[in-house]
Amino acid sequence: MDGKLGQPQIVYLHGFCSSPASWKSRLLAEEMARRGLARQFVCPQLSPVPEAAMAEVGRLIEQAPGPVTLVGSSLGGHYANHLAEKHGLQAVLINPAAVDRLDLAKFVGDHVNFHTGEQFFFSEAHAAQLRAQVARPTPARYWLLLETGDEVLDYRQAQDFYAACRQTVLNGGDHSFTRFPEFIPQILEFAEIRAGL
């Protein structure tokens, strides 16, 4: 939270059915470790229950030794928005889900985590929890990264929801945000994280 004096931290929030083993999470963790910054990166395995996921990350934020920047992808982008507004943080949103523009009913049903194999049921009650988390963004907090070739989410929904925020919109790509590696140095700069000694 604001006012903490320790080393700045990045908390990465993965997407729906994903995990800390996701491509972007691993790349960011590896690059930060290479720079001597491993202790300043956290990527929790998020509960498939939205309220439980946010309670867990909220505790991580409260316990962080220094100021936190959130980096969220897909559903993790929605979560980052919710937490940034609740805790007064800044956030990088990567092809984020603009929940108030999605038909969440189509996600209700059984799912399997891409990496862990965990099976879970996403219910209408879970969808209602997501809707209740929607928070209007404070523009100065955010940097939005979009690729127009996102095959999972219509990038224009996020572009509209975060219209007043800093945006980088790139042609092509896909939902994974294919150009993520080249943005890692800029994300670290945004988070005011500098190479370790």
Rank of each mutant, 00 (worst) to 15 (best):
S47H: 02
P48V: 09
V49F: 00
V49E: 04
M54A: 00
E56D: 11
G58R: 01
L60I: 03
L60A: 00
E62F: 01
Q63F: 00
Q63N: 04
A64S: 07
A64N: 00
P65S: 12
G66F: 04
T69W: 07
L70W: 01
V71K: 02
V71F: 03
S73V: 06
S73A: 15
S74F: 02
S74L: 05
L75E: 02
G76N: 06
G76V: 01
G76K: 01
G77N: 07
H78Y: 02
L83G: 00
A84F: 02
K86V: 03
K86H: 10
K86Y: 01
K86N: 03
H87Y: 11
Q90I: 02
Q90A: 06
I94S: 08
N95A: 14
N95K: 10
P96Y: 10
P96M: 12
A97I: 02
A98I: 12
V99R: 02
D100E: 13
D100C: 13
R101C: 09
R101V: 05
L102E: 13
L104H: 04
G109V: 09
D110M: 10
V112M: 10
F114W: 13
H115W: 13
G117S: 08
G117K: 04
F120G: 04
F121Y: 11
E124W: 01
H126R: 00
A127K: 02
R131Q: 08
R131D: 04
Q133P: 00
Q133Y: 03
A135Y: 05
R136G: 07
P137H: 10
T138L: 10
P139F: 09
A140R: 11
R141M: 06
Y142I: 07
Y142T: 10
W143A: 09
W143G: 09
L144K: 06
L144G: 08
L145D: 08
L145K: 08
T148W: 09
T148A: 14
G149W: 07
D150C: 15
D150K: 12
V152P: 14
V152C: 14
L153G: 13
L153F: 13
L153V: 13
D154E: 15
Q157I: 09
A158C: 14
A158K: 14
A158Y: 15
Q159D: 15
D160T: 15
D160M: 13
D160G: 14
D160H: 15
F161S: 09
F161P: 10
C165S: 15
C165A: 13
C165R: 11
Q167C: 12
Q167H: 11
Q167W: 04
T168L: 12
T168I: 10
V169E: 13
V169L: 11
L170G: 07
N171Y: 06
G172E: 12
G172R: 10
G173D: 11
G173M: 10
G173L: 11
D174V: 07
D174L: 10
F177N: 06
F177L: 09
T178F: 05
T178G: 06
T178E: 11
T178N: 11
R179F: 07
R179K: 03
F180C: 08
F180P: 04
I184S: 06
P185V: 08
P185M: 08
Q186H: 14
L188R: 01
L188H: 04
L188S: 06
E189K: 14
F190H: 12
A191W: 00
A191K: 03
E192P: 01
I193L: 11
I193T: 05
